[in-house]
């Protein structure tokens, strides 16, 4: 069961993990992008940390605040993508103070759809969608979430990017995992740990 406190804990955990993998995210982005993903995500989650001390009446209110914060702090493509995902997740949570596995899964599907719509992207293009979509569609309660997420991240290594800045490198984008896929797995892993 995901509670408001659990959700906050997941976001704090995400921030810690993003910080510790900041250089990895940036290096992956240097290889197939413009080398700022770690820096941007770190700035965004640092800002998220500062809103977690406030009280929220619902999962929806917290998620919406996180979305707006990411949208205004991350920049680049990741800002609007993560931002709109959290805003859509907020709509799915609504006024609920806690969410069971089914509701979390539904919210993640909504988040996925929002990322796809905003980024005009589909699965298979070597983007964060390649983690969000298959995970949200296929995850079952009690699964080994981390191993599923890791597998999805690794799968992006062999893909050729056809969306986002990595697509400029065409065939040369193969052989590097997608940094957005990795940051997505960090976030989803922290969230699922709280869902249980």
């Amino acid at each position: 069961m995901l509670t408001i406190d659990g959700f906050k804990q997941a976001l704090r955990h995400t921030q810690t993990e993003i910080e510790s993998q900041k250089d990895t995210l940036t290096d992956l982005d240097r290889a197939i992008g413009d080398g700022d993903h770690g820096i941007n995500m770190s700035r965004g989650f640092e800002a998220v940390l500062s809103i977690l001390d406030e009280d929220y009446d619902s999962l929806g209110a917290l998620s919406k605040k996180v979305g707006m914060t990411l949208m205004s702090k991350v920049g680049g493509a990741a800002g609007p993508l993560y931002g709109s995902a959290f805003v859509k997740i907020a709509a799915a949570f609504g006024d609920a103070k806690e969410a069971d596995f089914a509701l979390v899964k539904e919210a993640l599907l909504e988040g996925t759809n929002s990322i796809k719509a905003r980024g005009k992207s589909e699965a298979g293009q070597k983007t964060m969608v390649d983690v969000w979509e298959p995970f949200a569609l296929n995850v079952d309660e009690g699964d080994n979430y981390d191993s599923q997420l890791n597998e999805l991240v690794q799968k992006t290594e062999d893909m050729i990017a056809t969306k986002g800045r990595a697509s400029y490198f065409g065939e040369n984008s193969r052989g590097t995992i997608d940094p957005g896929a990795l940051s997505s797995s960090i976030l989803l892993s922290a969230l699922m740990k709280e869902v249980g």
């Binding site: 413009d34 080398g35 700022d36 941007n40 700035r43 949208m71 205004s72 702090k73 991350v74 920049g75 680049g76 493509a77 800002g79 609007p80």
Partner: peptide
């Protein structure tokens, strides 16, 4: 003016 090489955010 966004951060270096990073698109500015919608509010900006």
């Amino acid at each position: 003016c966004g951060e270096v090489f990073t698109s500015p955010t919608p509010d900006m």
